[in-house]
Design a protein around this nucleic acid. Structure first.
Lengths: 140, 140
DNA sequence: TATTAAGTAACAATTATTGTTACATGAAGA
DNA sequence: TCTTCATGTAACAATAATTGTTACTTAATA
């Protein structure tokens, strides 16, 4: 299935931002991520709206962290990107009131909720500073 | 993201098959699931290849269970449909040997593996007979 | 032999991210 | 002030997967 790599991408960008010292332009970040500056703006916009980064226009402008990495968890970023379901597995629309269909969907939903809860709980435990330090590059 | 509802669909179909008594045609099943007979054949083909169902052509033909529901788990069916990843979250291609990118991807991969393992472990615990009995319709 | 139904190839529809072009807006510098 | 830089958006093509559909072949049986 088509994968959503926005989380992976934006985490990469944020940790780079932390090292960069000064604001990085969408163009800079695009080059780091191997993508387009417009894609960068689009993705970073979601984080800006939640107060994790700020953007400045014009000369010497660009993106900066609005909080230290130690104050941001994987969960925060995941949520900021929009909390669409994490699974490629979907349920059928229950059009025809079939009790079997309902039963199957309920059972799958339960198991998926449980796995999603585990995933999100883990995401809450990991700050971006944790991530950054994992490969010996320490943040503030 | 686009969801894959094949699992939900095919479970629904298998439990109906169990009640049906005689073989059900792709057309019958398509009507139950609100979809096309070709879609049914396509999806059921994966299960046939793994020996969970059999198909007979011609008059009075159609699909039948090749094993009792109590011998088939959610995991079996999930696996038979092709073990593509369960998550919509994807990692970036690591093109440029950036240690930050690697670190981010490794961290996400670990957490996702853990959640996927939990999901699959739960899938292994549930037989289709369990599912069928959940709403008072008992299987063999 | 006609009919039934699976098997399968081929292609359009759908739906999400991703990629791209184009242009408006605002800030900084000369 | 005017030019340049960079974000902010809108609009649309590209991509990639399932799903939907048509058409045809193959096999079994009444």
């Amino acid at each position: 299935m088509r994968k959503d790599s926005r989380l992976s991408r934006v985490l990469h960008a944020l940790i780079h931002l932390d090292h960069h010292g000064k604001p990085a332009t969408s163009d800079d970040i695009g080059k780091m991520l191997g993508t387009n500056p417009v894609v960068v703006r689009r993705t970073m916009a979601a984080l800006r709206e939640q107060g994790y980064v700020s953007a400045v226009k014009g000369h010497n402008g660009g993106w900066s962290l609005a909080r230290p990495l130690s104050d941001i968890t994987l969960y925060d970023i995941h949520k900021a990107l929009g909390d669409s379901s994490v699974f490629t597995i979907g349920l059928t629309d229950e059009h025809n009131n079939c009790p079997i269909e309902h039963g199957v969907n309920n059972a799958l939903r339960d198991v998926m909720h449980e796995a999603e809860a585990l995933l999100l709980a883990r995401f809450k435990q990991v700050t971006l500073a944790n991530l950054a330090s994992e490969f010996g590059q320490h943040s503030v």
